[in-house]
Design a protein around this nucleic acid. Sequence first.
RNA 1: CCGCCCGUAGCUCAGUUGGAUAGAGCAUCGGAUUUCUAAUCCGGAGGUCACAGGUUCAAAUCCUGUCGGGCGGACCA
Length: 584
Amino acid sequence: MNIFNHFKDIVNVTIEELSQAGELPEGLDLGAVSVEPPRDPGHGDISTNAAMVLAKAAAMNPRDIAEKIAGALRDVADVASVDVAGPGFINLRLDDSFWQARVAEILLDGLGYGDSDLGGGEAVNVEYVSANPTGPMHVGHVRGAVFGDALASLLAKAGYDVAREYYINDAGAQIDVLARSVYLRYQQALGIDIGDIPEGFYPGDYLIPVGEALAKEQGDAWLDQPEEVWLKPVRLAATEAMMRMIREDLHMLGIDHEVFFSESDLVASGRIDQAIEMLRAKGLVYEGVLEPPKGQKPDDWEPRPQTLFRSTEFGDDVDRPLRKSDGSHTYFAADIAYHYDKAKRGFLRQIDVLGADHVGYVKRLEAAARAATDGKGQVDVRLCQLVRLYRNGKPVKMSKRAGTMVTLKELVEEVGKDVVRFIMLTRKNEAPLDFDFTKVVEQSRDNPVFYVQYAHARAHSALRKARESFPDMNFSSVGLAEADMSLLTDPAEVALIKAMAGWPRMVETAAEAHEPHRIAFYLYDLAAEFHTLWNKGNDDLSLRFIIESDAERTHARLAMVLALATVIRSGLEVLGVDAVEEMH
RNA sequence: CCGCCCGUAGCUCAGUUGGAUAGAGCAUCGGAUUUCUAAUCCGGAGGUCACAGGUUCAAAUCCUGUCGGGCGGACCA
């Protein structure tokens, strides 16, 4: 249960009742009323701005309105006290019993705690990674991959019907380059000395086995044959091999897309032409010549007649070419067809995760999505900034040309999937992120992955110890849910429960904002709350979770501890990080 | 020249879609260890939210402009 939504309903009903009773004007617009946690917990548990946003329409002093609403709220179940503060905030404090009841709720919901019906089962398509199938995944791809995957999980938890999709750019000129590079390796596999890999080819060793496989399969059939003979089949084989490799790489990170959508399929099936015709029918396509870009003019610029899409009608800066001067379609035309296809498959909500170097592409994508769906659909393009790698605080030098890129595989093998995933989500996506190989495996408070994992492990450590001390006690979630939670009265205990009870709201706000990093920060804060409580037991033995002389209290506290572990695990699950029960 | 993103404590960053006295971590200073629970915790100090206007009950948040940094800017993908 999102307790803030719950109390928002109560506040709204209260206001309507006051209207009916003539205490407030009728027909007030409650749209701007928010019910949220106050910034300062000292103000209470729940705060609403209702009086302030209604003051103008009601033609009343906000404090007067607040007093009326507050008076009515005092009679509501679970409300311990109501205060009016500042310019007209209404602050609610809830009974401890309300918070204590959350513990059982969490235990009975299990990992489903925090599930929301915010999305109402609406279909959302999240497209992410979509790296060109020309080589292994490297660090540059990882952030977007993790971000997209976590966002997809987050939206699923928030009640959307999520599809995870990968767009394979297998139709462009770079695939021809890939095929020729593989052909070299094919020749090499048949014993021909190819010398150094020439400029303009992909030099990576990862193509050697692809060439070898082709040699085994085809023998010398393609040797000394013109490109027309082998290019097409080699392209296909090479792309398939690259995609197998990429899927394996992604799998190491816990990422498994449901749909792999091929650009060349789009081309072959004529759907690009169909998409262009669709736009033409709406009067959004014309033949024309673009102005040169303002400011610095490219050296090779010349006026050219092109088939153009009126993306400026949808807020883009200039109209965009759909066909090159030779008549073939542009990458953008394929992308329109792709997003059109997604819409036809029922996805009016689409999310594209791209690298920050694609900023210039965002407006035209949004334009395309709206044009293709008559404004009903929307695409949210999320850009991920660079990741800067460090080791011992020193930058790791990488160069694509020199072949010194750190691959996804190396990254995961060195620090582990969980570390990579968590750290990638410790910054909002559009901010650059530093990733220090040394720091991220450190076992200290500076390292958020460890800090959160440790809280979870500590919780399980307490449970293990408790089982030894009380062998007859039922420590299952159902058994613990029956504990007498009214024994959880210490302020630090109640504070921890409040933090846990904030999880459902966190899911909803993070999902609405499309910002999975908020989950990582929430988990860090929640872990801190738990460590604080844990440590209080050092100073004050009566606050320890396990009290040998008091089975009832122990049972209740362990219920809280398991609830904490459950919320952390639930959060880590959204991030795709495993919760460990023991540190080593 | 144009577009987008960023600018918050010495450093790295949050900031609940416009709320109250702007928060963490690191670093620094001072404390807690006879460890069933210190890989942790408590406290102090640290701020012109880049700058200037505007919008309103209320602005780090929204609008305009300026400065600084990053990214991008036709038949590449």
